[in-house]
């Protein structure tokens, strides 16, 4: 074999190797080039919620029940391990025992979420539209986020559950952390979270949900009129769930 032949042979060999390694990737790249780019979240939206604690009553659990069914939140019958995406809390001022209020507590979808800051694998992330979510495909279950959340909004999946109450939404296998997603799957379809829907339909109509970036939306009008407060605003996390009347 002459020197020239050898060179051509080597070049061809290299081309073959590169071709076989890269070709599948290139085909895929072409496949995704035709992918539609619309239909994703945009920073024009900023989802938020207002809860009127004057309307919410202690014996109504429509929101928590609706959430449990919609999102397959596990209930094991042991308060230590039950999942909670939204829970009813009764608060009584220490100075005035008679003046107690009931309210739902859920993930506040903070503007500066400490859970996202501490997540070692960036499984917790903020979507373009401000919803804080967990990528359960990536979560390693270290539970640092549960330590960092000041609202106790996150729960860990201690056991596997067998059944889906709503097959359209995935349940969680054991070993990951879960929390409220503002029903992101419904928002993407143009609907409102199931807790708000349930509250408006059969509850006390105490919840308002909407786009904080839209000056004409119901929620922005409501905030202008009633100036509701976020929880623990002193921590500087800028929560996007507001409470009127506490």
């Amino acid at each position: 074999m002459s020197e020239l032949d050898r060179r051509i042979f080597l070049k061809l060999g290299a081309a073959a190797v590169i071709g076989t390694t890269l070709a599948p990737g290139i085909t895929l790249f072409q496949a995704f080039a035709q992918d539609e780019t619309e239909g994703r979240t945009s920073s024009k939206d900023r989802w938020g919620m207002v809860i009127d604690t004057n309307k919410c009553t202690a014996d109504c659990t429509e929101c928590t029940a609706a959430c449990r069914t919609e999102n397959n939140v596990p209930l094991f019958g042991d308060p230590r391990y039950d999942g909670h995406w939204i829970r009813k809390v009764t608060v009584t001022p220490k100075t005035d025992g008679a003046h107690s209020r009931s309210l739902p507590l859920l993930c506040n979808h903070c503007e500066h979420p400490p859970c996202q800051h501490v997540c070692p694998v960036a499984a917790t992330f903020t979507r373009e539209d401000g919803i804080v979510m967990i990528d359960k495909h990536r979560c390693i279950g270290c539970r640092y986020c549960m330590i960092a959340c000041p609202y106790k909004a996150r729960t860990f999946v201690f056991k596997n559950t067998e059944k889906w109450s709503n097959p359209d939404v995935p349940k969680r296998g054991k070993g990951v952390v879960e929390k409220c997603t503002f029903c992101a799957h419904r928002i993407d379809k143009g609907q409102i979270p199931s807790c708000v829907e349930a509250c408006n339909k059969s509850g006390e109509k105490a919840m308002v949900f909407g786009n904080l970036n839209d000056p004409n939306s119901e929620i922005v009008q409501y905030i202008r009129e009633h100036a509701p407060k976020g929880l623990r605003e002193d921590l500087g996390l800028e929560p996007k769930v507001f409470y009127k009347g506490i």
Binding site: A31, Q34, D35, E36, E38, G39, R40, T41, F125, R127, E128, D129, D135, A184, I187, D188, K189
Partner: peptide, 8 residues
């Protein structure tokens, strides 16, 4: 991550 609801 991006809420894409019309993927191919």
């Amino acid at each position: 991550r991006n809420g894409a609801h019309k993927p191919k």
